[in-house]
């Protein structure tokens, strides 16, 4: 129903959870929340079709969406929580911090001082640091080298996907593998990645210049509201138990549906049944996360 349903390989993760074809997921009959947000769960520019249900991550988001006039809202939990339910944590050694500098999305530009941010990271983080850049910044040699010169390892989880094209089923898997190698997860803004990290067992931290998007207009209260409402998740050291409880709630890890129920909700068939409703889309190159399959 919406190309954003396939961002970050979300539909792929859910299809696999439902016992269906993982690389080639079916159409979800509804709008799936694709990132943590403080509004109705959907992107600010999301276009709604009346009667199409919203599949939201958390009960708090559902309540908020309802109060904003959204109906037919249903809490299903985040794809990330489903992925974790399918991929139990192993006994691997965790070390250092994975740091997610705030990024813009396609067509947006971040205004901020990366140099000052690097100084702050150095002052706080005791161990090795991996910086994870959004694919736009990762493609910028200048930004990448900025962090590499600071001695940080620089990675990118991949391209989140376009309009039914260049989808990346492995995005969340790579992110999970990275997070589970690190003891801490940090960012200069509270964001999906921080919640993901908490749920994946990392100690969280949110500090440093939060930076700005060029022409950024605070939506739903913006950063000041986030800092007020989730104050417990801000700072270089955070109570892990509190953070985990908040992450469980925000990612709906306590609200996961059984596969049969999820299939019915998305109008997906039972495993092995005829597939009536596959969406036409292309996927990314499996070896290079920021190149398309055609470029491989």
């Amino acid at each position: 129903m919406h190309h954003a349903n396939h961002y970050y390989g979300h539909s792929h993760v859910l299809a696999r959870y439902c016992g269906l074809d993982d690389p080639d997921p079916l159409r979800i009959h509804g709008y799936l929340q694709h990132g943590w947000n403080i509004g109705d769960g959907m992107a600010p520019d999301h276009e709604f079709v009346p009667g199409v249900p919203l599949f939201l991550w958390s009960e708090r988001t559902r309540r908020r969406a309802w109060s904003l006039g959204r109906r037919q809202t249903y809490v299903v939990g985040s794809p990330w929580a489903y992925l974790l339910a399918m991929e139990p944590d192993g006994p691997q050694r965790r070390e250092g911090t994975i740091w997610y500098p705030f990024h813009g999305w396609e067509g947006q530009r971040v205004v901020g001082d990366h140099g000052r941010l690097i100084d702050e990271i150095r002052a706080v983080e005791p161990g090795p640091v991996t910086v994870c850049l959004y694919w736009q910044e990762y493609r910028s040699r200048r930004v990448r080298q900025h962090y590499e010169r600071a001695g940080f390892r620089v990675v990118c989880h991949g391209y989140r996907g376009g309009r039914w094209s260049d989808l990346d089923p492995g995005f969340l898997h790579r992110q999970l593998a990275e997070l589970r190698q690190h003891r801490r997860v940090a960012s200069n803004r509270l964001c999906s990645a921080v919640f993901y990290g908490i749920l994946a067992g990392c100690e969280p931290a949110v500090y440093g210049d939060p930076m700005q998007l060029a022409g950024e207009a605070p939506v739903w209260g913006g950063q000041p509201r986030i800092r007020r409402q989730w104050a417990q998740l801000h700072g270089p050291q955070i109570d892990v138990a509190v953070a985990r409880a908040l992450a469980v709630a925000e990612l709906g890890a306590d609200r996961l549906l059984p596969p049969a129920e999820l299939r019915r909700l998305f109008r997906w068939p039972d495993p092995g049944a005829a597939v009536p409703d596959r969406e036409t889309a292309t996927t990314r190159c499996p070896t290079d996360p920021v190149r398309s399959e055609a470029e491989c």
Binding site: G30, R71, Q72, T73, Y74, P258, A260, E261, R264, L265
Partner: peptide, 23 residues
Amino acid sequence: AHLWPAPTDELAATLATMAGREP
């Protein structure tokens, strides 16, 4: 019925699925 994201005539099937039954 509006509390369920399913057409009203499919609500029984949704309830059955939630109950772990084959609709």
